[in-house]
Computed example of a mutant assay.
Amino acid sequence: MHPEPLRLYVDARFVSPYALSAFVALCEKGLAFETVQVDLNNAAQHQAHYAGLSLTHRVPTLVQGDFALSESSAITEYLDESFPGQRLYPQAVQARAKARQVQAWLRSDLLPIRSERNTLVVFCGHQVAAPLSADAQRAADKLFKAALALLPDDREYLFGEWSIADVELAVMLNRLVLNGDPVPARLADYAAHQWQRPSVQQWLDLPRA
């Protein structure tokens, strides 16, 4: 039993891909939760109240009673291990490890893509006119090669059934797809399919300035 109410602290503009991941996880689990906005533009993440909750002074942070947890992958793993309902990770041990590998890779690599195609492209419809730099194109080619290897035979999901890693890979691909950059059709179709998931649509429907 988890009687304590859940609060998810997210960025005020709803453009953090990591906040999206935690938000989708809560929705997929069918959990009631309050969304609390943190104004990163005014450095609210460093103010005493939030800094007292978030170890990293970043979003998202999940709060449940006197328990607070930062970092989106930690949050999604906690939710999957603590609550019944839709699984967020594959059940098989090796597939689950592979899903976590995808999450860790997307957070630690491909910086030129994240820099040149920020999430205003993904969540606010902004487009960047400048073509990808040579570094970003190399990163894109690396992304495409890895994603195609993970998705053989036109499979719908990375590991046979939906997982939170599918949402996170779709975000990275959509940095390019939604900007109009060339992306292999197989991967563009995969990203579009993940984008139609109701939990993702709930995030996309949040009001943005």
Rank of each mutant, 00 (worst) to 15 (best):
E4N: 11
P5Y: 08
L6H: 05
L8N: 00
L8K: 05
L8W: 04
Y9D: 04
V10K: 03
D11F: 12
A12G: 12
R13E: 13
F14S: 04
P17R: 01
Y18P: 00
L20A: 05
L20P: 00
L20H: 08
S21Q: 13
S21D: 10
S21E: 06
F23E: 03
A25M: 11
L26H: 08
E28A: 11
A32H: 13
A32M: 12
F33D: 03
E34K: 11
V38D: 02
D39M: 08
N42Q: 14
A43D: 12
A43V: 09
A44V: 06
Q45F: 10
H46L: 11
A48S: 11
H49V: 08
H49E: 13
A51F: 07
G52S: 12
L53P: 05
T56L: 10
H57E: 13
R58H: 14
R58M: 11
V63P: 03
Q64G: 09
Q64R: 09
Q64I: 15
G65N: 13
S70L: 10
S70A: 15
E71R: 09
S72V: 14
A74W: 12
T76L: 07
Y78G: 07
D80Q: 10
D80E: 15
D80K: 12
E81W: 06
E81P: 11
E81G: 14
S82Q: 15
G85S: 14
Q86S: 14
P90H: 15
A92Y: 15
A95C: 13
A99W: 01
R100W: 08
Q103N: 13
A104W: 14
L106I: 14
D109H: 15
D109P: 05
D109G: 10
V121D: 00
F123M: 02
C124I: 04
V128S: 03
A129M: 03
A129N: 05
D135G: 03
A139C: 10
A139G: 05
D141Y: 04
K142M: 09
K142D: 01
L143N: 01
F144E: 00
K145C: 10
A146K: 03
A146Y: 01
L150T: 01
P152C: 02
E156G: 04
Y157E: 02
L158T: 01
L158W: 01
F159V: 00
S163V: 05
D166M: 10
D166F: 06
V167I: 08
V167A: 09
L169A: 05
V171P: 00
M172E: 02
M172G: 00
N174Q: 06
V177P: 00
N179M: 08
N179E: 06
D181G: 05
P182G: 08
A188E: 08
Y190G: 07
A191K: 02
W195S: 07
R197G: 14
P198I: 11
S199E: 10
Q201V: 13
Q201F: 11
W203G: 03
L204W: 14
P207Q: 11
P207E: 15
